[in-house]
């Protein structure tokens, strides 16, 4: 009987009989005993197995911990310094290319009916009138405060080295002051509101004091005076002092982005007065009524004609 049991055990261990078959032949208690012996074999096998893998796992864990603990700081610095180097390299490359192509120019342009206030690098302020452009170079600005103007702008210059406004018609040089420059095709107008302004047109040099101005129209030179402390256009009014009607009409077109047909009128008549920059109706009336000119809107164009009714 017991010997049979031992044979059953061998058969079961070798997979010759299944659990169910075994259970039919032996008691439940004996079945558990078989299982226990079988498990003990496995446990002995595992306890006796070489622990090389365990030691490897321990070493790996120790290494990871030491990597975590040792020079954390150094790693961080390395990371950032690498970043810093690459960022610096980017800047060098970027500005290098920019300088190489001489392209540090800044262009600021005010469109039809627009006014732009610009803060320059030295804190000086420029108010740019409609259809006007200023251009300056950021890299040379530190050495020389110099900009180029096409159109009209009002300058509030902070004190410092000379500040030069170059135009096609001449240059205006100051040391911290407030002045207005209006440079159009054949028209050049500079008015000083504060400080002293030097205006150079070809061979002629004028020094303007506050309230004084100069106007050059087709080489005809005139000095003028104003009681204003700032140009009227800044407050939304375009002001003219004895200027040809052509320039007034040009200004209307710029401020309101309109087209005026002036073929039927005499543009050379001079005009003194101002117009509102916001309301077209009022502006047209204030320019053309005193000049005895009729205006009519035909196909989005304003056609001007002489009013002969009077």
């Amino acid at each position: 009987m017991e010997e049979n049991y031992n044979i059953f055990f061998a058969d079961w261990m070798e997979g010759k009989i299944s659990d169910i078959e075994l259970k039919e032949k032996i008691s439940e208690k004996e079945f558990l005993a078989f299982q226990k012996i079988n498990k003990t074999f496995d446990v002995i096998s595992e306890l006796e197995a070489p622990l090389d893998n365990t030691l490897l796992a321990i070493k790996k864990n120790i290494q990871q911990n030491t990597v975590k603990e040792t020079p954390k700081k150094k790693n961080v610095i390395n990371l950032y310094s690498k970043w810093a180097v690459s960022i610096a390299a980017m800047f060098v490359l970027f500005f290098g290319i920019k300088n190489y192509f001489g392209n540090t120019d800044v262009n600021i342009y005010a469109n039809y009916g627009e006014q732009k206030t610009i803060a320059l690098l030295d804190g000086s302020e420029v108010i740019l009138n409609a259809k006007s452009t200023i251009k300056y170079n950021t890299s040379s600005w530190k050495n020389k405060r110099e900009l180029f103007l096409d159109g009209e702008a009002y300058f509030k210059v902070t004190k410092g080295s000379t500040f030069t406004v170059n135009t096609k018609n001449g240059s205006v040089t100051v040391l911290g002051t407030q002045f207005n420059v209006n440079s159009k095709d054949n028209y050049f107008n500079v008015i000083c509101y504060e400080g002293k302004v030097k205006v150079v047109e070809g061979n002629r040099t004028n020094i303007l004091t506050p309230g004084k101005g100069i106007t050059t129209l087709n080489t005809k030179h005139k000095t003028l005076e104003t009681a204003n402390t700032t140009p009227n256009w800044i407050h939304g009014e375009s002001e003219f002092n004895n200027v040809p009607l052509k320039l007034v009409i040009d200004e209307l077109e710029k401020q309101f982005h309109i087209t005026l047909d002036r073929s039927a009128i005499d543009e050379t008549k001079s005009f003194t007065g101002s117009f509102d920059n916001k309301k077209l109706k009022i502006a047209l009336a204030s320019v053309f009524k005193p000049m005895q000119i009729k205006y009519k809107t035909i196909n989005k164009k304003i056609v001007l004609s002489n009013d002969n009714s009077k």
């Binding site: 017991e2 010997e3 049991y5 031992n6 044979i7 055990f9 061998a10 261990m13 070798e14 558990l32 005993a33 078989f34 226990k36 012996i37």
Partner: peptide, 19 residues
């Protein structure tokens, strides 16, 4: 091998005796 293993199992089971 099979024969030796079978003998080993029978002996082990017999030697452990009652559990």
């Amino acid at each position: 091998v099979e024969k030796r293993m079978r003998n080993a199992l029978i002996i082990v089971r017999a030697q452990i005796g009652n559990i």
